[in-house]
């Protein structure tokens, strides 16, 4: 099944241009990997990038640049880094995301775990995998900052609709929802937020009902 919830055209364009923050770009790419429509859209913007590069005003290279490049291609390529160790039980990441490093899985509440994801770029974003057990209901909450989410496995619903693997969700302070995970299995989402408060926020929103508030 192809996704029904898509990133905006602006997000796809900035992802293709390389101007989107890296964590957000990771989430957009997780969607694109499963969505032929958005893959074509990203392809369009990359073609535009290529055509704009072709017509870019050349900035002259310094003297001897070509000779240095010719010397460089004679040298052996540096060995590629060892592939990241795969932790058992880690959900399979979609095509193209295997370069990321997964941190230690943290237990947040019964049936809920968070695994931090490190992108290879310097960024102040928080990127994580959120795994929520089958049939669970998250208390009603809003989102600090701008948060992007892509469903990797399972599905959940809120008042706006149902989200299946590949579906993309953008939320911010203005969105308040109470997601319900489908009964037939846990839901794993990849999420990126520009707000450092999200983890506290996340723990808060999960523990709220447990604490009886």
């Amino acid at each position: 099944m192809t996704p029904r919830h898509h990133p905006s055209q602006d997000l796809i364009a900035s992802c293709a241009a390389g101007t989107l923050r890296p964590g957000a770009a990771l989430v957009v790419r997780a969607h694109i990997a499963r969505c032929p429509t958005c893959r074509a859209e990203a392809g369009f913007f990359e073609s535009l990038g290529g055509a704009l590069l072709e017509t870019e005003t050349p900035a002259p290279m310094s003297a001897g640049a070509l000779d240095r490049a010719l010397a460089a291609i004679d040298r052996p390529a540096p060995a590629p880094p060892a592939p990241a160790r795969v932790r058992s039980g880690r959900p399979a990441l979609p095509h193209g995301l295997d370069g990321v490093t997964m941190g230690k899985r943290r237990w947040i509440a019964p049936g809920v775990t968070v695994t931090p994801v490190t992108t290879r770029h310097n960024s102040r974003e928080l990127v994580y995998l959120l795994r929520i057990g089958a049939g669970m209901v998250l208390p009603r909450h809003t989102h600090a900052g701008c948060e992007f989410t892509c469903v990797l496995e399972g599905s959940f619903s809120d008042s706006a609709g149902r989200y299946d693997p590949g579906d993309f969700i953008a939320t911010d302070e203005s969105i308040e929802h109470s997601p319900v995970v489908a009964r037939d299995g846990p839901c794993v989402c990849l999420a990126a937020t520009d707000s450092p408060l999200v983890m506290r926020d996340l723990v808060g929103r999960i523990f709220q009902p447990l604490a009886g508030i």
């Binding site: 241009a17 990359e46 290529g50 590069l53 390529a77 540096p78 880094p81 770029h121 310097n122």
Partner: peptide
């Protein structure tokens, strides 16, 4: 040009990495 654009774009994104030289050549 599109392929080279992608390579240049990704290299620029990787420019902050400590292992940038490796980044230039890894898949």
């Amino acid at each position: 040009s599109t392929w080279i654009f992608r390579i240049a774009r990704n290299l620029r994104l990787d420019a902050g990495r400590r292992d940038r030289t490796a980044a230039a050549f890894e898949p």
